[in-house]
């Protein structure tokens, strides 16, 4: 499982931009909502699309889910328990690098 978490985390870090938005609160919202939706979509659950904002999280997650499925053949056959574990651990690592222990001094400024 650790290798799979590494693979998903590594792909997100190389490919995505949303974990590095301007401020901590945006980064956290993106990380949790997009990775949460990736887990839902992988396990054929519906994502929240009620507002433009939640729809944007869905769109990012949908494309990422397709990319992960194409790049890692094992991704499509993960069980609900496995994808939940991957989701939680990838979220933890993204939060760690982009929010909790980021060296970026600007990310806590209150204004954009």
């Amino acid at each position: 499982m650790e290798e799979k978490v590494d693979a998903v985390y590594g792909f997100v870090m190389e490919r995505c931009l949303w974990q590095f938005f301007s401020r901590n609160w945006d980064r956290e919202a993106n990380i949790k909502n997009i990775m949460g939706n990736v887990a839902k979509l992988q396990s054929a659950q519906e994502a929240d699309r009620a507002t433009n904002q939640t729809n944007a999280y869905y769109a990012d997650a949908k494309i990422l889910t397709e990319q992960l499925s194409k790049k890692f053949p094992w991704f499509v056959s993960l069980s609900l328990e496995e994808i939940s574990t991957i989701r939680d651990q990838v979220i933890d690592r993204l939060m760690d690098v982009a929010v909790v222990h980021s060296l970026n001094a600007e990310r806590t400024e209150i204004n954009y």
């Binding site: 931009l17 949303w18 938005f21 769109a59 990012d60 494309i63």
Partner: peptide
């Protein structure tokens, strides 16, 4: 205004596909 910000790469052959697909999914 509640308008979501979606960051995209509009340079790069493969990136452009990804960016358009995000708009399509939205």
């Amino acid at each position: 205004y509640g308008i979501p910000r979606m960051d995209v790469d509009t340079w790069g052959f493969d990136y452009v596909k990804e960016s358009l697909r995000k708009v399509g999914a939205f």
